[in-house]
Structures are given as structure tokens and as C-alpha cells.
Simulated assay, not measured.
Amino acid sequence: MLWVDKYRPKSLDKVLVHEDVAQNLKKLVTEQDCPHLLFYGPSGSGKKTLIMALLRQMFGASAEKVKVENKTWKVDAGSRTIDLELTTLSSSHHVELNPSDAGFQDRYIVQEIIKEMAKNRPIDVKGKKGFKVLVLNEVDKLSREAQHSLRRTMEKYSASCRLILCCDSSSKVTEAVRSRCLNVRISAPKEDQIVKVLEFIGKKEGLQLPPGFAARIAEKSGRSLRRAILSFETCRVQQYPFTNNQVIPPMDWEEYVSEIAADIMKEQSPKRLFQVRGKLYELLVNCIPPEVILKRLLHELLKKLDSELKHEVCHWAAYYEHSMRLGQKAIFHIEAFVAKFMSIYKGFLIATFG
């Protein structure tokens, strides 16, 4: 088992969030009626850990007995019936799913599948809550139509179902959905908090950490606790005993993006653009979020650029990120940014060196 799962806190008291957040959630659980909840915050801040601790607080240890199902649903889409395949994680008290996995068909997931789940009200047993909890991930990636359907579902089935929504940015969730939830912001942990967690894991695993080693991992993590723990375990696998000058390895996908940036800088041509497209596809197929790819690619390109070009390149990166959020196929927009960059950079080289 990975350390990130092995040492995941199981109670609200031990989750790495502000004390007020944990106390207020505890208070909600003790009350008879828990509202819909929206947890938002950066990746790796502990939103999923907090949700699982909350479910355990609500329903006891049985909330952890989950099964993974890959189910095909037949959904009525007006004049035709379509098959939608969706992976769900469920216990006897809750169901977790990611409606945005269905892409542009996400509204059917919300309209039909969630309705079906919300109708099945569990029986009150030994004082347990008489409602089922639906955990929906990445709600900020849902289409407007899906979010409108979600609002209606929240209202219609509130007697038998509670929704826990999870996303990175609440600004992309419609006001209608946000206003029907208790909004809980989960901030990224500070570096010193990450250091304490790494030192705790090191102690549990019987590892000797050189002075400042945990701090270096924390600094490279970008305040993502999940990433810090994964990096720590990678270091352990690569070399132990640890040394003072041991390199903290970057993520594989980050190295790959760095290679793509180097390719773009070496040659600006249709042939190179075609090669880069293949590598971008590789990243997307391996579930690296497109906005993360674009942001990292920009970061790598800026490191190699003259200062006079940086402003223009940042402008076009923002432009294509916005168009990517409005469009469907992420590859088109990332590739368009690469093509635009090649055009700008080639023009700059010709003007400078002739």
C-alpha cells in the first residue's frame, strides 16, 4: 500500500485542516439535518481525505467498506437511448462518482443516474442518518446544462439525499449550485505542516532523515501534501539511507513536459508540431489534466525565453486556456498554443539573427 493511503487520517480531528473547519463539520454531523456541502481548494490539500473522515463520522466504519463498480447505464436522451459507462465507488451509505468523465454527455449523468441513486433512500437504523450521500468529484468541470440539472436534483431529492461536491475552484460552479450548499474552503497545507507529516511517516517507517531533507521535499511539492508523500516514498525506493545532497526527483510527467518544451525550442516546423502533438496525446491519455499540462508547458518555456517575449507568450497561454475551458477537445487548444508559440519564437529569431 502506498504511504499516501497507509497514513491517511480517518477522523476529523486528525485531518490537516483548520481546527474551526473540523469542529464545525463535527457539529453538523451531530445535528439531525446536514446540508449539501461544497468542498473546494487546490489539488493535494486534503479534500477527499476530509470527505472520507466526514462520512466515517456520520456512518461509522461501514462507510469505508467500499466496492468499485463499472456499470453501463441506459439513459433516455429524447429521441434515442444512449449507453453511458461510469465507474462508481460505493458503500451502503454513499456513492462517489465523477460525472465530468462523461464529457459533453455529463448532463445525462446528472439528470438520470443521480436521480436514480437519489430515489433509493436508506432505512433509518440505530439512529443512523435516513439519507444517502452522493459525493460528486470535479463539479467545476461540469457543463452549464449539467450544473442546472444538478440544482434541480438537489432541490427535488433533498429529503432522501445529501450531496457532497468537490472541486478545485468554486468560481466555475454556478451561483445556483453554490447557494444551495454550505461552502467549505480547504486551503493548501503550509510547508512546515508538510514537514511534520513527512517526519511522522519517517518515524513510523523507521527511517533516518538527514537535517533539512523533509523541508526540501516540502518546498518542491508546491504545498501539495499528496505530492510530498509520493515524492518521499519515491526517494525511499530510489536510495536509502538518504543523503544530504540526494536529488528530489520530479514527477515523470513533469520531465516529459520539459522534454516537449526543449523540442519546441529546438525547431519550429509543421513536422515538429506533429511530433509534439503525439507527446501531448500521451500525457492526456495518462490522465494528466489539460490545464495542468498547459500551465507546466508555459512554465518550462518561460525559463528558456528572453524577457521581451514573456509577456506576449503569457497572454496567448491565458487566451488558449480560456478557449480550452469553453471548448471540448483539449488537444486542439494546447496544440494551438504550441503553434502560436512557434510562430512568435520563429519571428523573434528571424528578426534578431536574420
Rank of each mutant, 00 (worst) to 15 (best):
K190P: 02
E233T: 04
L165W: 04
V257G: 05
R226M: 05
A228V: 06
L2D: 15
K48V: 08
L136K: 05
L230D: 13
V247A: 10
L305Q: 08
D20S: 12
P35G: 03
K47H: 04
P290S: 08
E199S: 07
K65W: 07
D252T: 09
W316V: 06
A261F: 07
V133W: 00
G206C: 04
R80H: 14
N183W: 13
K346V: 08
R8D: 01
K74L: 08
V195A: 04
E254N: 03
V237C: 13
C314L: 11
V173D: 00
L163V: 06
K204Y: 01
N244K: 15
K271T: 13
I217S: 02
V29K: 06
K74T: 15
S169R: 12
G206S: 03
R107P: 03
M52P: 03
G202H: 11
L163M: 08
C314F: 13
P241F: 06
G212V: 06
N137E: 15
A63W: 05
V29A: 05
I293L: 05
G212W: 12
S169F: 12
K346W: 11
P210R: 10
D263V: 08
D20L: 11
E291L: 06
F348T: 08
C181A: 01
K172L: 10
K65R: 12
D5R: 11
A318L: 10
M154R: 03
F213T: 09
R8L: 10
Q238W: 10
M342L: 05
D252R: 06
S91W: 02
K67S: 08
F353R: 15
H18S: 15
K47D: 09
I201A: 07
V285F: 14
L136M: 01
T174E: 10
Q23C: 12
E145A: 11
E191M: 12
G41C: 05
L284S: 01
P42D: 01
G278S: 13
V110Q: 01
T87H: 11
V195H: 01
I113S: 07
